[in-house]
Write a protein that binds this DNA or RNA. Structure first.
Length: 556
RNA sequence: GGACCUAUAGUUUAAUGGAUAGAAUAUUCGGCUUCGGACCGAAUGAUCUAGGUUCGAAUCCUAGUAGGCCCA
């Protein structure tokens, strides 16, 4: 539809199609038209009042469009040229497209590696950390839906002080659940008795030197933690294709990499004998006090930065890379990017997200373990399930409390722009009315209920053909919203931003509920048409929610 | 001290430089003899401050203020 208008304007104005496409907008009010072309740009060139230009263009276009059924009329209002599309034509098109399950998908066929979620394998994640996984998973879903071949990776930081600490107190019967307590107790011991630090670093050194006993112990602990986290994420419907271990990048591998850096002439030894990359001629220089990237200790063993570079180099061999990181990693990742550029390697595209803050009486603040001001994912999930169960009980309906709870959590994490902090409050998070995950699921369940009843009664009479009736404004709004789905997915993909889908899903559901309220489906003359429209809504919202990782239910 | 991100109704937020700043929540009213009231309708209420660019700024630029985050 939009393309038709672009073509018309291109003929009438001499502007390039791409230019016109950018300028065309949707009027604030549908009574003003379906698409609008503001004529300000032309006024400079033609040295005329934009309103006059609009009038001339309207005359010109009205001459040309006679053969087009899709455009019902063109008007000018002040400097705007407003296009009215034929709603019945649009309805016909959309009902044909949006009732097939692939609606909105594409066939891009690019091979992309996505890395997200790298929780320290030592503790239960809080909701802030979970934002990484939920955004990452949604991006994976969007890219797959667009037809790409995605491999999802999880980078396990198994070479860390935290694991060494756990190793110090590990007992054979320990489980994932006891790890957190172990970690807390050893942290406390360490605070009281700093001499333990030495033992911890010795253990880490033995691990890096591949002492078999130590390696086995680390492997065991990390195995338990990774398994536990994997289960937790699977509960949320988030899966990974591959777990990559930092420890695989220890040793001879790093020596070769250091040699490559040496050849660039940017590697030098600092006063303490460490191997340092000089980044003073790169963009990171002005962002740091000292633009140096420490890659190895004085004894020549690599540091985590070197391993990150090695790992990223490895991943880049597989094709395009996308990585989801917290805003705290911004500068660090730029350093890695500059290091990769130095070796003439391509680098990943990064999605950064801001943290979750906690709403307190004195305003929003960052979460703090010390003050006890934090929300664990498990706690959030538990409370949400409880709330969902209460709602189900109240309504005496069937429903999966867990699916509803997960929808609430995921939607809360995705509805904001990536680089905006999320302000978490229990009151808002446990409100399932309005702009919330359950509202979206509810709209689907309502639509499904109509379809169920329709199918039951249809056993008697089977009239499949239908005409498109005169449309109500609610029907038009719903049809228009549905028609926006493919371009919305495309935009979200381009910007790697799931919040675009989240916002769209809410608007779509709102349009449906307004339609539902004002247009009865069953038993009306236009029953067949409306059933088809309800079905178009169902596939669209289902696809849209799928991209957010939210499951729909026939009843709730 | 330096770098980056953010600032919109009481609260949480939307708005490719364009028409009357759109929602949700909270508050107050109204709507089931009707396909599901986790719904729908109405009212109230907002662009951090000061300059600048532009025919036109919530949006771009500069400075300040507040919060997030990183570097030393």
């Amino acid at each position: 539809m939009k393309q038709i208008i672009v073509d018309l304007l291109a003929k009438a104005t001499k502007l390039k199609k791409e230019e016109i496409e950018k300028i065309i907008e949707i009027p604030p009010n549908s009574e003003m038209g379906d698409y609008a072309f503001p004529c300000y740009i032309l006024s400079k060139e033609l040295r005329k009042n934009p309103a006059e230009i609009a009038m001339e263009l309207a005359r010109e276009i009205n001459k040309n469009k006679k053969s087009l059924k899709e455009i019902s009329r063109v008007e000018c209002k002040g400097p705007y040229l407003n296009f009215f599309i034929d709603k019945k034509m649009l309805a016909k098109q959309i009902l044909a497209k949006a009732t097939v399950s692939e609606f909105g998908s594409a066939k891009e066929k690019q091979k992309i590696l996505v890395e997200h979620t790298s929780v320290n394998p030592n503790a239960s994640p809080h909701v802030g950390r979970t934002r990484n996984s939920i955004i990452g998973d949604s991006i994976v879903r969007i890219l797959k839906f667009r037809g790409n071949n995605i491999e999802t990776h999880y980078y396990v930081n198994d070479v860390s002080k935290q694991i060494a600490m756990l190793a110090l107190v590990f007992k054979p019967k320990d489980t994932f659940n006891s790890m957190l307590n172990n970690y807390i107790s050893i942290s406390k011991k360490l605070e009281k008795n700093p001499s333990l630090e030495k033992q911890i670093f010795q253990l880490l050194e033995r691990f890096e030197n591949k002492d078999k006993k130590t390696v086995d112990l680390f492997r065991k602990i990390v195995g338990i933690c990774v398994q536990g986290q994997k289960q937790l994420f699977e509960e949320l419907g988030i899966k990974f294709d591959k777990f990559d271990y930092e420890s695989e990048y220890v040793g001879s591998f790093s020596k070769e990499l250091l040699k490559k850096f040496e050849k660039t002439g940017k590697l030098f030894e600092d006063k303490e004998g460490r191997l340092v990359l000089n980044q003073s001629n790169t963009p990171v220089a002005r962002k740091m006090k000292a633009p140096y990237f420490v890659l190895a200790r004085s004894n020549g063993t690599g540091l985590y930065g070197l391993r990150d570079i090695a790992y990223t180099l490895d991943k880049m061999k597989k094709g395009k890379n996308i990585i989801v990181l917290g805003e705290d990693q911004k500068l660090y990742f730029e350093q890695i990017k500059e290091a990769l550029k130095l070796l003439n390697s391509p680098y990943p595209e990064v999605v950064h997200y801001s943290f979750v803050l906690l709403q307190t009486d004195s305003g929003a603040r960052k979460m703090s373990t010390r003050r006890g001001e934090l929300v664990l994912l498990e706690e959030f999930l538990k409370e949400s399930v409880k709330k969902a169960q209460e709602e189900i009980k109240k309504r005496k309906t069937k429903g999966d409390a867990k699916k509803i709870a997960i929808a609430a959590i995921k939607y809360a994490m995705l509805r904001n722009d990536n680089d905006k902090n999320i302000i978490f409050s229990w009151e808002n998070s446990l409100n399932f009315e309005g702009d919330s995950g359950p509202y979206l699921q509810y709209s689907y369940a309502r639509a499904s209920s109509i379809i169920r009843k329709a199918e039951k009664s249809k056993l008697k009479s089977k009239s499949k053909s239908y005409d498109i009736p005169e449309l109500t404004s609610q029907e038009i709004n719903l049809i228009k919203k549905i028609s926006e789905f493919p371009q919305t997915v495309e935009k979200a993909e381009k910007q790697l931003n799931p919040s675009i889908i989240a916002n769209y899903s809410f608007q779509l559901s709102q349009s449906f509920n307004e339609f539902y309220h004002s247009c009865k489906v069953l038993g009306e003359d236009c029953e067949e048409f409306r059933i088809k429209l309800v079905n178009a809504f169902r596939t669209t919202i289902k696809n849209s929610l799928y991209l957010l990782g939210i499951e729909v239910m026939e009843e709730m």
